[in-house]
Structure formats: structure tokens, C-alpha cells
Design a binder for these strands. Structure first.
Lengths: 229, 229
DNA sequence: CGGCATCCATTTTGATACTG
DNA sequence: CAGTATCAAAATGGATGCCG
């Protein structure tokens, strides 16, 4: 395995040698919101068979980007988690997501799957650090059956799968609304006004939340275009 | 073509549908330092055949990331350039490069090729915007037969293939030294002291240059490691 | 359920020869 | 030099079965 290399002494190429194969960066994306079990990973990634998934995870493990953990009680089952090196791929994945939010997220297509965790990462991708100066807050998102939380500490954001301990605000929202929101086709304020979402908790923290994400204005990639430089 | 899609309504997955195939991001990398001809691209990317290269460029063109241009005189030949959308993949490519600089750039391996343009992009990846506040300068790098320039304007950097008009500083340097420098295994100051590089022009701009790039301390990805979270 | 091997149809790729 | 045509090798997708 991994005999196929670009053979270039270049940081980008070396990185792509490690994580450029099909599915690999999406596996990293899944783990960026916390450890996941083998089955969870496969469930999120339709089209990825057990054989290839096992091969990819073994590769990531061998390369030191992922390691096996035992989930804390009461779960106690085995799962995969990112190592420090794996976690630091976050900025690269989020950069790809930012580009996609601006240039590739038109209407959802038939056939396309969606999981709330992707939208959570989408929010994280357009987190505006400046807008969060001085803010320390814990937000919980209850999207259909899935729960996530975002911890904001003065310009930093952490988004994790699972409930929060003592959230300042809890947002309850349907999957489709949440999807539209993360794709910039709706806002949280609108959704709450609509009744499509509800928020409870610290009202001031909620007001800050509205300002924290700066979604790019979607653009179309027309093939006929003036030079970039 | 492009029938293979992840079918996920996710910004990262949609982006990878467009540029996640083998070679594609490396082609973007090549074009990030300016337009290139078909043959130049193939020359830089050993192992990429003409058939696949043609298919990739056609795909990128159809998707509006690349377009054909006619090089200005005296060249006048056809070339490929990034569109606005393509150019904006820069941050994602540079994020991958930053990760690689930290976690994947050990010694060059036998068989690995190297082109100065990659190192130029490596420098750009670790450009420190804060260190460049108030600086407006044009640097020219003459690496073996290749010439690049970097234009710095107060926190922004632009790196382009080709000579500069009226550079403030011109650095002449060998390919291997430049390679080591961009991989963090040497510094420009050392290279100049060694005589491995020479610089002429505005001495103050040269002093600033030394401070502009913050290379990450290389790390090893040990598979046996404590959890990241 | 987690994890892995095996078999097979389909795609993707790599390498080379060939054409305007 | 820019690209097409062709073919062999490799990667992928999907199904299935096995084992603890």
C-alpha cells in the first residue's frame, strides 16, 4: 500500500501522498468532531465499503494521524481518534470547506446525503475570530437525533460531537433548516423567527452567536472569465 | 467524466469532488505561481502522462477553475491560468503545505524531484503577515535557471514566476540550498554567510526579509501517541 | 457489531505510441 | 509542442462470508 507516491520534495505533494487518496480527507473530517467508531464512519460515508475503510484506517494509523481509543464510560467501545498530527489537518480541511461554501454549495442535489456534523464543521469554517473577542460561551446544538456543542473562548472555537455539560444556550433545530443555515441559505435569526428553530438559555450569549459566523457570498464559477492575475 | 462523486451535501466533499482527484491539486499548485504551458506542467509533474494531463485540464476548464490564455509578448504561446475561483484555492493548498512542512518534510528521498517553484510556495505558506506590517518591497529570487519574485505589501504576499521589474533585493541561490531553506533546514542568513547565496540591493529590505517567514518546527508523527482531545 | 479476506465488475491511472 | 489513441496495471465499489 501507499506505493503510489508523487515523488516530489514538496510539502503539498508529501501531504497529498499521505491524505490525498479517495475518502481519506473525509475520514479526517469525520474525526474532526470527535472520535468515531468503525460503523459510524461507514454509516456517514455512503459508498465506502468495509474493506476500503479498514485499509484507510490502517493506513492513517500507521502514519500516525489516527489512533485507536476506548470510548469513556458508559460507551466503552473501541473508536478512532485523531492524533495531534491528524488534528492539525483541521485548518486544511476547513480551508477546503471555505472554498466549497463560496464556490460549490448550490442547492442540494437528489441523491446527496447530509449529516449535521458536516454543517457544524461548515460553521466552524466560517467562524469569525474577531467577532468572538472577549466571548466565552458554550453552545449546544440539538439537530434531529444528533447533538453537538461549540465552545468559544475569545477567538477560538471547538466543535465536538456530543452534549455539553452546562451550555449557555441550547439550540434545537431540524436537520434541513440546519443544513440551509450552514450553507448560507438561511440565518439562525430567521429560523428562530420562523419557529424552525428554538433557543433557550442566556439571551446575551444568543445575541453574540448571531454575529459569530461570516458566510461567504456564494459565487458561480463561470468558465468564461477574465484572468485572475 | 466526473461521474464519481461523493454525493454529500458538504462543502469539503463538494470541493473534493472538483479537485480531489489525483494530480488535480498539484496542477493548481503549479498555476499558483503564474500561467504555465501544457509542456511545462507535464515537465514539473513526473508520472503524469499527457492523456491524463489533458483530461485534468479540460475538467478544470469546464469547471471554471482554469482558463486558457495567450502569454504576453514575446512569448505569445498558449498557456493555462487560474480563474478567480481557481486562485482562491490558494489558501487550501497553502494549508496543506503548512501541514506538510511541519509533519512530513524530512530529508529528501532518492527519486524525489524538486522544482524551485515549490519552495517559493513553501515560503508563501509560512509568510508571517504581522511581521510584514508596513513593509512594501519587491524581492527577486534567481534559483538556478528559474526566476521568481515576491511582492510584499503590508501583510500581503504575492509570489510569481518570472523576473521582477525593479526589485528592491535580488537573491541568487542554488537549487539545493533554496530547497533546504524552504524546508526549514537552513536559513537565508546562513546561506548568505556561507556564500551559498548572495543578495544585492536595498540592505534594509534584505534585513526585513529574514524575519518574514516563520517555518514550523518539524515534528514526527509517532503512531503511538496520546489522544489529541 | 467490528474488522478483515475474497471475488469480481467497473474506473482510474500510467506509459507509450501516434498525429497535426 | 499540444494533444489523442491505446492498452496494461492498479484502485475502487459492492457483495459476501468469516470470525470473535
Amino acid at each position: 500500500m501507499e506505493q503510489r507516491t508523487y515523488n516530489q520534495y514538496c510539502a503539498t505533494a508529501r501531504t497529498l501522498d499521505l491524505v490525498g487518496e479517495r475518502w481519506t480527507l473525509l475520514l479526517v473530517r469525520e474525526l474532526l468532531t470527535g472520535p468515531k467508531r468503525f460503523g459510524d464512519l461507514q454509516h456517514s460515508l455512503r459508498g465506502l465499503g468495509t474493506g476500503l475503510l479498514a485499509a484507510r484506517m490502517k493506513h492513517l494509523e500507521r502514519e500516525g494521524l489516527v489512533h485507536k481509543v476506548t470510548l469513556p464510560p458508559p460507551a466503552r467501545t473501541a473508536a478512532y481518534a485523531l492524533t495531534r498530527a491528524g488534528e492539525e489537518l483541521g485548518p486544511a480541511v476547513l480551508a477546503l470547506a471555505r472554498w466549497g461554501l463560496k464556490w460549490a454549495m448550490d442547492e442540494p442535489r437528489e441523491q446527496e446525503t447530509f449529516h449535521p456534523g458536516w454543517a457544524v464543521l461548515g460553521l466552524r469554517a466560517c467562524f469569525d475570530a474577531e467577532a468572538a473577542t472577549g466571548l466565552h460561551a458554550l453552545y449546544e446544538f440539538r439537530v434531529e437525533e444528533e447533538i453537538f456543542h461549540a465552545r468559544i473562548d475569545d477567538g477560538t472555537i471547538e466543535t465536538v460531537h456530543g452534549p455539553a455539560q452546562h451550555p449557555d444556550v441550547t439550540i434545537t433545530i431540524g436537520g434541513e433548516v440546519f443544513r440551509d443555515l450552514a450553507a448560507g441559505r438561511s440565518t439562525l435569526a430567521e429560523a428562530i423567527n420562523n419557529g424552525a428553530a428554538s433557543a433557550s438559555g442566556d439571551q446575551q450569549a444568543l445575541r453574540r452567536l448571531h454575529q459569530l459566523f461570516r458566510l461567504p457570498r456564494p459565487q458561480t464559477r463561470s468558465a468564461a472569465q477574465a484572468p485572475a492575475s
